[in-house]
Amino acid sequence: MSDPQHLSAGADQHGESHAAKHATAGTYVAVLGALAVLTLIELVVAYIPIVREPLLIIIAIGKAWLVLQFYMHLRYENKILTWIFMIPAVAVGIVTVIMQFFV
């Protein structure tokens, strides 16, 4: 852990400045709106006969990205946490896609 202070939040000597780096209430509302709109788009896309599956997966990745970046604060954290989560996520994604060819 190269820089543990940047991983921490709350009761530390940098608590207030760290909190200020978090998203604002307005950002949280905007992200909720984006998530709701993307979910509605998903419901429409589900009835499109062609390129339905890749589109749905892309939208799902977009929604997950919004939650991870803004609600889980990865955008404001030390990048090591992003790597900890994203490396297995990409590995799992690749395995799942490969499995599609054997179904």
């Binding site: 991983l7 921490s8 530390d12 940098h14 954290e77 946490l81 297995p88 996520a89």
Partner: peptide, 19 residues
């Protein structure tokens, strides 16, 4: 600070394993 940082990293490692 170290304790919070470690528990945060532990939580992310746990979530990664859950995937």
């Amino acid at each position: 600070t170290y304790s919070v940082a470690n528990s945060k990293m532990a939580m992310w490692l746990f979530l990664a394993s859950e995937m």
